[in-house]
Design a protein around this nucleic acid. Structure first.
Lengths: 188, 188
DNA sequence: ACCTGAACACCGTTCAAGT
DNA sequence: ACCTGAACACCGTTCAAGT
């Protein structure tokens, strides 16, 4: 697991996702990008689906790191929450195809290792929400549900934007606007 | 436009989406489902992408109708809002692949006719939000932004659920829970 | 006008064979 | 152990030809 060639392949797949989206990630384009024969990737990944799972695993850890930094760098919970949401939005905008792979694509395999990596960022997010509740900047209620709700709003706004569904007429012109409005109205 | 065979093809495509998701909708499977040669669909749709656009157009109108019914059948704005959100959730759960096609898929073409159909349900949704504001069951602020925010939350929760990202640990076990929590916390 | 079969350039994946 | 070329069963799409 995770030998050098394997990591090189996953990195190349991430690049293909950024450049041309899901459909650009063909096993053959990947092989060519790395400079091997069209079927060599099968030595390192069972199939296309588990290659994408490898990219997703890496990126979930990346987001965990970003959320941890947000929590550590801010002195107040409210600031930590805004930084975490900001990192989430920035990732979605910079890497739309990878974002969808992580948070939307229903074909992503449900392996235990990947599921654990997927839950990690959310758990950090919950801890930030708890801090806000202790500070009194978020209402007192079940923190997991509250975090889930805020997370769903951010995800929905990001997904609508990168899917091109957030025309001005929809009041979703800015993802930051949407999440800011939510946080403002949630203030107790 | 919209001859009999064309509508039969779009209906068959919707069925394929429901049964096997995006990847099951191949021009060849579609042709077989309707009983014509593998390239006959090209007489009615420019390509696969515009076939999917045809399905999306039909479903946007379906949702507009559902939202209009929600608005008409309820005597109070708050009830209308819950019915509209309920219809939105029910559609997403019953037709996940079609839901993603309408609200997530970035490859959906950006034709004017389709964009108009896509905005229609949201405009009805905004009017319901305005009614809630007049009743005092939603806070007074820019209604389009508020509607956009509620819509984003519902979409995010639905998308996470049909993508299999809403394990219990995420506090997103029930989409209805998430939207209910939002509406409860938004009550002025 | 509408449909057909053949064809082209792609795919993912497998397999026997090489070093 | 790792890579290769050939092959298979699929795709979307085009085109010349039929009625």
């Amino acid at each position: 697991m995770s030998g050098l060639t394997q990591r090189k392949l996953a990195a190349a797949a991430a690049r293909l996702l950024d450049q041309g989206g899901q459909e650009a990630v063909t096993m053959r384009a990947l092989a060519e990008a790395v400079g091997v024969s069209h079927n060599a990737p099968y030595r390192h990944f069972r199939d296309r689906s588990s290659l994408l799972a490898g990219v997703a695993f890496h990126d979930f850890e990346l987001l965990s790191k970003a959320f941890r930094s947000a929590a550590a760098d801010a002195t107040e919970g409210a600031a930590a929450l805004r930084r975490a949401i900001g990192a989430f939005i920035a990732y979605g905008r910079k890497h739309p195809a990878r974002y969808r792979l992580l948070f939307s694509d229903p074909s992503l395999p449900a392996e235990d290792e990947l599921k654990a990596a997927a839950i990690a960022p959310f758990e950090i997010f919950v801890r930030i929400v708890v801090r806000c509740q202790q500070e009194g900047t978020l209402p007192p209620c079940d923190p997991v549900r509250l975090a889930g709700m805020i997370f769903a709003t951010a995800h929905g706004a990001i997904d609508l934007e990168i899917g091109g569904r957030a025309s001005g007429a929809k009041g979703l012109s800015s993802v930051t606007d949407t999440t800011e409005l939510l946080l403002r109205l949630l203030k107790p």
